[in-house]
């Protein structure tokens, strides 16, 4: 089956790398572009410190495969469940509480853009192009794009992108806040990878996840509950750190 091997996974120096691997356009064959079970198995590695998402070859991803989508509709397929599986996948990735970085070059359209928007950090090559073309096909972004795009760039720019479907380049994308950093084309993967390494190398996985979890709670929980959670997480880390320190001073006393 065509969709089977379109996503590759590897772990390099503690960083999980998801490669969208159906070049040249890297279409996402299905909204659930990788089986949730595979993703769960991959990310279960307890030493994992971050996840990098990129596309094989010249492009990040041109988005969903619309021909397949429309053929499914005529087949009376359960479309709602079909789309929901994609949303579940993105929620799962975010829920790992690992830093997610998208390394983007070439086209980043539709579902590809929605995948990038689920990441915390977007690094783009100078030649990157962004668009949300769904309305041109009588559709809307269906994997959280209508929520995450306005959250990221504000309502005005999000509406413009979604309603017109117009393409914007990397410079414009940075100006409206869609991406964080622009780098030369051949450096985009290394830049993203090194940034993840620099951010996570010295830290225990638990501390990394605690920071990401606290950041996520701020948008998913009511304010009061988010504060209580932050408190609880800090307390747990502080107790561990206190024990580590007293064990260390104990040891130093023993050595002396």
């Amino acid at each position: 089956m065509k969709g089977k091997h379109q996503i590759e996974w590897e772990i390099r120096d503690g960083i999980g790398i998801i490669t969208i691997s159906s070049p040249p356009e890297n279409y996402l064959y299905e909204p659930a572009f990788v089986p949730l079970e595979s993703l769960k198995k991959w990310t279960a590695d307890p030493s994992l410190k971050g996840i990098l998402i990129h596309g094989k070859g010249k492009h990040f991803s041109a988005g969903g495969d619309l021909d397949r989508l429309f053929s499914l509709i005529t087949d009376n397929h359960d479309l709602k469940a079909y789309l929901a599986a994609g949303t579940t996948l993105l929620e799962y990735l975010i829920g790992t509480d690992l830093p997610l970085v998208a390394a983007i070059q070439g086209v980043c359209f539709g579902g590809g853009l929605e995948l990038a928007l689920a990441c915390h950090i977007r690094i783009a090559a100078e030649n990157a192009l962004f668009a949300s073309p769904e309305t041109g096909h009588g559709l809307i972004p269906g994997m959280g794009g209508t929520v995450r795009l306005p959250e990221t760039v504000g309502q005005a720019q999000a509406l413009r992108m979604i309603l017109t479907g117009d393409m914007i380049n990397a410079e414009e994308a940075r100006m409206i806040g869609l991406i964080d950093i622009i780098v030369p084309r051949h450096e985009v993967f290394d830049y993203a990878f090194n940034m993840l390494r620099k951010m996570t190398d010295a830290l225990p996985v638990k501390v990394i996840r605690s920071v990401l979890r606290t950041l996520r709670n701020a948008t998913t929980l009511p304010a009061e509950q988010a504060i209580t959670e932050e408190n609880r997480i800090f307390c747990e880390l502080a107790k561990e750190e206190a024990k580590r320190r007293s064990a260390e001073s104990e040891k130093n006393r023993g050595d002396a």
Partner: peptide, 12 residues
């Protein structure tokens, strides 16, 4: 984080 903690007073 360099002390294995997180900013715990709303800073994040």
């Amino acid at each position: 984080t360099t002390f294995n903690l997180i900013p715990g007073i709303g800073g994040i």
